[in-house]
Simulated assay, not measured.
Amino acid sequence: MRIFLAGATGAVGKPLVRQLIARGHDVTATTRSAAKAEALRQLGVTAVIIDGLDGAAVGEAVARAEPDAIIHQMTGVSGKPDFKNFDRWFAPTNALRTVGTDNLLAAARAVGVKRFVAQSYTGWNNIREGGPAKSEDDPLDTSPPKALTETLAAIQHLERSVTDAPLDGIVLRYGNFYGPGASEELVRMVQGRMMPILGGGTGIWSWIHVDDAAAAAVVALERGSPGLYNIVDDQPAAVSEWLPYLAEVVGAKPPLRLPVWLGRLVVGEMLVRWMTEARGASNAKAKRELSLELAWPTWRDGFRHGLVGQEPVASPQFRAVA
């Protein structure tokens, strides 16, 4: 297929480009950087330098590419995490999830694209009640901390816009990323003991390696049915379980432990809730309907062998849907 990949140089975009080329697709890939555009061309794609918030530029680029499908992987996260002011930190990504999504959907309608795959998220935005792993049918959090209201609204806008559009709209709700290009800041924080366990560390997190996240986008592109899919590994885990393990893997001292009241003062309500009340996600639907096989089925193996600075040790496996 002819693919228009918006956001090709991020943590997921880079392995996704490699996998699309390996599958024989003709890829037009976007970036905002001239230097990154040249690196993309060397991988064998047609590189386009555009801002996803520029509707006219997006429309022209999509029209020139004449794609069969569009993949939306645009994000704008940069700098140190700011959990106290999360909406402000995530503002560039929120704009890409709202205005950027609208621009791509408008371009898709204009040229008659029928398949649209978009990146979303599952984690802190899950409802904080009931069992540890939420399905795609479970509601999202109805009362997020104030610092997350704009970010949650942006996620909801993307998901609603893509699934309601008159095309084959597929939304991939990725868990927390790790792997080359996604783990470096996390590792730095853990090694510096800047990521404490708050309270009992009872919040449940779901993880996904960036190579598996990219593989899920390829599978969804090639054979996915419209709808929402949680793209996470097989083992949702409490913070009290995965964070000490990660510290051990990267040669750090055990994480500090802080009571909830002190955590609110130091890092804010958002991270306190995430570390104490969060719910993970189930990948049952993605495995059942996409037949996705994970190269890193558990964060334990992934943290130890696929965390940073390594090329994938195994190519994702693709099987026909039964």
Rank of each mutant, 00 (worst) to 15 (best):
R2F: 00
T9Y: 04
A11P: 10
A11L: 07
V12A: 07
G13I: 05
K14A: 15
P15K: 08
L16Q: 12
Q19V: 00
D26N: 09
V27T: 07
A29S: 09
A29H: 11
T30I: 05
R32Y: 02
R32M: 04
R32Q: 09
A39F: 04
R41A: 03
Q42C: 00
Q42S: 00
G44S: 07
G44A: 12
D51C: 00
G52T: 05
D54C: 06
A56Q: 04
A57W: 13
V58Q: 06
E60W: 09
E60C: 05
A61T: 03
V62Y: 00
I70F: 02
Q73M: 12
G76E: 08
S78P: 10
S78N: 08
S78Y: 05
G79Q: 06
F83I: 04
D87N: 04
W89V: 03
F90Y: 13
F90R: 11
L96H: 03
L96E: 06
L105G: 01
R109S: 01
K114Y: 00
R115H: 00
V117E: 03
G123C: 08
G123T: 03
G123M: 09
N125I: 14
N125A: 15
N126S: 13
I127V: 14
R128F: 10
G131M: 14
K134F: 09
K134E: 11
T142K: 08
T142V: 07
S143R: 14
P144W: 06
T149K: 15
A153D: 12
A153N: 13
A153E: 14
A154T: 09
E159F: 11
S161N: 07
V162C: 07
T163E: 03
D164Q: 00
L167D: 01
D168M: 15
I170T: 10
R173H: 04
G179I: 02
A182F: 02
M189F: 13
V190S: 13
G192T: 08
M194F: 10
I197Q: 14
G203S: 07
G203F: 11
D211F: 02
V219F: 00
E222V: 05
R223H: 15
V232M: 04
V239F: 13
S240P: 13
W242M: 08
L243A: 09
E248A: 10
V249P: 01
G251H: 07
G251R: 06
G251V: 05
P255C: 14
L258V: 12
L258K: 02
W261S: 08
W261G: 08
V272W: 09
R279T: 03
K285Y: 02
K285C: 05
E293L: 14
P297I: 04
D301G: 13
D301H: 06
G302P: 12
R304I: 00
G306V: 13
L307M: 08
V308Q: 04
E311M: 13
A314Y: 05
S315E: 11
Q317M: 06
